[in-house]
Amino acid sequence: MRRWLTSQTMQQSVFVGPALLVYAAIMVLPLLLGIYYSFSDWNGVSSHIDWVGLKNYKTIFTDDPGFGRSFWFTARFTVSVVIISNAIGFAIAYVLSKPLKTRNMLRTVFFMPNVLGGLLLGFIWQFIFTRSFSAIGQATDIGFFNLSWLGTEATAFWALVIVSVWQGAGYLMVIYIAGLTNVPSDMLEAASIDGATGMQTLRHIVLPLIMPAVTICLFLSISWAFKSFDLNFSLTQGGPYKSTESVAMNIYYEAFKSNRYGLGTAKAVIFFVVVTVITMIQLSMTKKKEVEM
């Protein structure tokens, strides 16, 4: 009796079971259902569903330039956002881990954009780009402000990057600060006694020691940028002419606006596989670079 109660199986199911059950119900089950729907022609509301085999996947690969275009946009967007937001996030964290008087206040200020939701942020920036910028442009005649920021392909792309970086960098900063404060000060001291310059210390001591933070930040920013939806939705609506339509938006439009739920889920399944593969590669690559103390 006793033995049965304290057995491994019993322990596992009591402690992991409830969480696993919830996870299965709200994550695994919808995923499996989605895979099932991706082989069907369901329109999202009808009560009868027909099995169509691989037809949806065939359509995506042979007859859907829109999906390819949104994938290409998302890829460019992800690369830009990941590089810029991590660089800025790290730079701010590095500066704000120095003993500055205003550093607590500055940390709050940089983190603030993250508190606002993406949708709201999109509307605020839409106002800034279309109204404030043009007002400043008219008053000062500076070319930068006179651009039709959301009206052309290139500027709309960079508008999205700017807002995403502005929103995400603060969060990454917090993680980097946590990493930086964990770097033992005796090591830094030893390095400076040995005559290492600031750059050398950063490159050979600080960076290797905060690799766990880098892993997390890269992972987070890649998955944010890849799944980006709300910002595109409220800032540019995917425009002009669908040039800033992210994959998530393309899926949303296909499944809910065009009444092709089956085709939409097929796209989502492909997207899921791609994101999984990319983040796995990234995780295993940066994991290798982490050093144990």
Partner: peptide
């Protein structure tokens, strides 16, 4: 057809 109007709109913007 479903989904045609957004495509029309996007071509018109171009």
């Amino acid at each position: 057809p479903d989904g045609a109007a957004p495509e029309f709109g996007s071509s018109m913007q171009k």
